[in-house]
């Protein structure tokens, strides 16, 4: 079946079986291999992309359901020489080892910071009616949908904390 997808501002005509996930469409049909397949079951976050401003797991989404939706993948966030603030911070903080989970981490963190701006609480927020204050505990909870097999978590949290301007972020305080 035919679907028109909008990815990183460009329009693509996809001709694929109805079974094709958005992740497989990106990787196997459109050559956008930045998004990674870890589990294919919503359990790891490595396939995270941003759809109409919201982070989603592209492995549990059918490509044919996504016409008219603005999709942003890691390729659309920045590129060598023009990295997004989070991409740049992940590099400087060594927020990875093998790098396999990184595109998903950065897409998830990008949309997560917008959730904070919109005032979304998390389950570790004490007062649900107040605007949440970002802390390392908040970042860990909000990023729990992205597993890192290399366990680069401390540096991932540092990279995100820096971009988010979390109070008391270690080096900023020095």
């Amino acid at each position: 079946m035919k679907t028109t997808l909008t990815i990183n501002g460009a329009s693509y005509e996809l001709e694929a079986d109805s079974r094709t996930s958005l992740l497989d469409a990106l990787r196997n049909h459109l050559g956008l291999t930045g998004s990674k397949k870890g589990c294919d079951h919503g359990q790891c976050g490595s396939c995270t992309v941003i759809a109409d401003g919201r982070r989603i797991n592209s492995c549990l989404t059918l490509a044919c359901m996504m016409d008219g939706v603005e999709i942003t993948t890691i390729e659309g966030l920045g590129e060598p020489g023009a990295l997004s603030p989070l991409q740049d911070a992940f590099v400087r903080h060594d927020g990875y080892q093998c790098g396999y989970c990184t595109p998903g981490q950065i897409c998830a963190a990008t949309a997560m910071l917008d959730e904070i701006k919109a005032g979304w609480p998390s389950v570790v927020t004490d007062d649900l009616t107040a605007s949440p204050e970002l802390s390392e505990a908040e970042i860990s909870e909000r990023m729990s949908g992205n597993l890192c097999r290399c366990a680069a978590y401390p540096n991932i949290v540092d990279a995100i904390s820096e971009v988010a301007g979390v109070n008391g972020w270690k080096e900023a305080a020095e």
């Binding site: 919503g42 759809a51 549990l60 998830a108 609480p121 389950v123 649900l128 990023m143 949908g145």
Partner: peptide
């Protein structure tokens, strides 16, 4: 994250926020 749910049905807001991940809840 609906204001009315956060204010009047905290149990529901917390149950939802405790489920799955940010991506899946979207």
């Amino acid at each position: 994250v609906d204001d009315r749910v956060r204010r009047n049905y905290e149990v529901l807001s917390r149950a939802l926020l405790s489920g799955a991940s940010g991506q899946l809840r979207n």
